[in-house]
Amino acid sequence: MRPRIMMAISVVAMAALCVAVLLPGPTTAVTEKRFITHSGAVISTTGEVLDPLYTVSTVEFDPDEYLRNFEYGRVSQEGGQTVREYTIIARDDQVQEISPGVFYNVWTYNGTVPGPTIRATEGDIVRIQFINQGSKQHTMHFHGIHPAEMDGVFEIVGPGGGQFTYEFEAGPVGVHPYHCHVMPLEEHIVHGLYGVFIVDPVGGRPAADEMVMVLNGFDTDFDGENNFYAANTVPFYYQHHPIRIQQGELVRVYAVNMVEFDPINNFHLHGNLYYYYPTGTDTVPSHYTDMVTLSQTERGILEFVYQYPGQYVFHAHKVEFSEKGWVGTFLVDGSS
């Protein structure tokens, strides 16, 4: 090869590269989709929209159904006492779409996170047939007053069909969590083995539109920090599907904080204040406020009435949590 030829080749190669680098690539016409950002801008894309707000309707757990669902059990009378019997099955093999496109191994009581809301009146006998269909040991530990052997801590229930019957008198009045108490405890809780236990006073509380909100989070990449937060598991769900309530009607929210890793959570309501009953154990509210701070398993009852119709946000005022999903809205209907 002669130097002259080499030089020519080099120069031509550089010229060709020049053209290749500067020419625009091929373009193809595709249909456009639109979505709205948190700040209200409308964006078009030729690709896929990734937005928990607008694509959430496909997830397996239905927060709307959970919100106002209370399980009173199979009711019978024994010696003048009301007995409420439940069957709770624990599993740890489910993979659930906890946010659109995000698949996470949830551990469940009766197939959902949170587990069913167990509701009884003070003094009722609560009898729970607990079956562990998981691959690990699990239990049910109720917050409340009960004999030591019903505490679900030392009475480990083995995997693959192990059984235990929890039986105790419901009390005290209030809203309490229940959760698995097998070590490592944090792992069993953050995977989803928790639920709400409501004890009504004899004679009940004043009539209200009642709902349960479990404030929870998911650490989907196991780095000891939650990737998602929510009221009732699915991030941003109630923002996209507002909770409909009536103007002038009393609303009662049983709120339980089950978030792990973060020391606190909180509950802020817009356009209104609520009467707050810590743990729901007293009939006199401790605060009239729009903000309570909740530590792990701290819980209470919120009561409020909306004076004006319209849409109102509620969310964690630890706004990191609300920007990761713990945000929703009430749609106050003023027509009736």
Partner: peptide
């Protein structure tokens, strides 16, 4: 690809041509 965030705060986003 199922989600984008900025400073660990989830943002509505789009992925092109697909996720």
């Amino acid at each position: 690809i199922v989600q984008g965030d900025i400073n660990d705060r989830i943002q509505p986003s789009a992925v092109e041509p697909d996720g």
